[in-house]
Amino acid sequence: MNRFLKILFFALLVKPMVLLGLGLNVFFKAKLPKQGPAIVVANHNSHLDTLVLMSLYPLSQIHKIRPVAAADYFLKNKLLAWFSLNIIGIIPMQRKHIRDTSALFAQCHRALDDGDILLLFPEGSRGKPEQLSDLKRGVHHLIKSRKTLKVVPVMMHGLGKALPKGEMIFVPFNCDVVVGDAIPFNADAKCYIDSVSNALNQLLALCMTRQSVVKDDLE
């Protein structure tokens, strides 16, 4: 039943809205992992990020795409929790209890074992519009025990204008989605996170909408 609702939600609402209200410039879509287990790491500027990434997958695959999202935000009331868990299919992450990493990532590991594709936003929060914040190291913890897992970077640009943090009103903009090459594993967490960050910044150069940000806004 929930899977049916999920397909309806994406077929009737998300996909048409992404097509018409947004309009995507997708580059190198073929590099997206088609089957799990795999991880997609993306920059995060808007709630739309998750929906756009999921909309790139066919309806038959959408239940295998699992965004990792903050429990304190998305489970804060019953309705939002039901929607997040059943329609979007998030894996809730307890941002407060980060001491016990094995418990923190237990659900992520279970999903990967099931062959799901995880969507991770290593910035941790949407932050300022169209700016890449410092990346968190969680993704490294997650793949330490899975050195061969495919981790694919995706840079999105323009969504922070369409629906930025703290805004309720949606404004139509074309957005770029650039998919990069899989990032090789590195035992050193800092090096690994730097390579993710570099990969995302390189993909930014391919974005058509990259000039649409006014420099004054970034100060």
């Binding site: 309009g23 519009p129 323009g158 204008k161 930025p164 805004e167 009103i169 404004v171 139509p172 903009f173 074309n174 957005c175 058509m208 909408t209 000039q211 649409s212 940000v213 006014v214 004054d216 806004d217």
Partner: peptide, 26 residues
């Protein structure tokens, strides 16, 4: 017209503060 205007707004520099004005323009 909508698709053309959207393309313009997506490539040209506009401020975050302009979002509402863009909506009126649409």
């Amino acid at each position: 017209s909508f698709l053309a205007l959207k393309e313009f707004f997506s490539i040209m520099p506009t401020r975050q503060a302009d979002r509402r004005i863009l909506l009126w323009a649409y």
